[in-house]
Amino acid sequence: MIRELIIYPGVDKSGFRERFTYIKLKAGETVSIVGPTGSGKTALITDIELLAQEDTYTKRRITINGQVPSDEIRYNPAMKPIVMITQNTKCFADLTTEEFLRIHARARKISDHGVIKDTIDLANTFTGEKIKKDTRVTVLSGGQTRSLLIADAILIGAAPIILLDEIENAGIFKQEVVRLIHNAGKMVIFVTHDPVIALLTKTRIIMENGAVKNILYQNEPEIRAARNLLELDRKIGNVREELRAGKAITFDFLSVNFA
């Protein structure tokens, strides 16, 4: 059982110590990591994914339930309590979607064979053009790959901690993903440039120059701002789907969506 994860400070890009004592994240908590491009957001979640022990260049240290994770937990995927969706949306493995998922299920010691079909079905709820089980992963588009990897993380990774690096960039149904993940009772950490996702999380970590600059907690006005933005985001989503489907925006559409 994961109760908490603690991040101990490392050094920024200039080699100066980060100015927090520790960051404690609890099971079920949602966190966003925000900051300018190049500020070290990906570096921070990579430290979490690798369960760094001062052996990454940021020199951070991560503990789980107050303990230094054992080698077994750090290096055996079947034991690893963390799944990560990276910023990269390319697969190099010359395998079909089905083979890829099957080997990954073996790596994560999942014996339920239904999981492969379920994962593909779930991925297809996030994406436009459907992924088939015998499509080679190397030819999937960026958005399709990402959808597959998110579904894979939820059903095959099935870990209590999920790290997501800029899921908003792939043209997938973001709200669908966010809703699903929020309901799963997991610790979710979003690296994001998206104000909706940032405002929806309880804790916000601000990055600058490779270091954690500040930590903020969701306040009352932010919850309201998030609600309004969500509504706006849904509208933008509706327009996007109309345009993607090759339709023109009509007065009818306007009066339904922007009344």
Binding site: T46, E49, P77, V83, M84, I85, T86, N88, T89, K90, C91, F92, A93, L95, F100, I103, H104, R106, A107, R108, T145, L149, D152, A153, I156, G157
Partner: peptide, 15 residues
């Protein structure tokens, strides 16, 4: 490993 997804890394290791 910075160039591939976590799932693909795990598939490679498993292989």
């Amino acid at each position: 490993i910075d160039l591939v997804s976590q799932a693909e890394r795990e598939v490679m290791i498993q292989k």
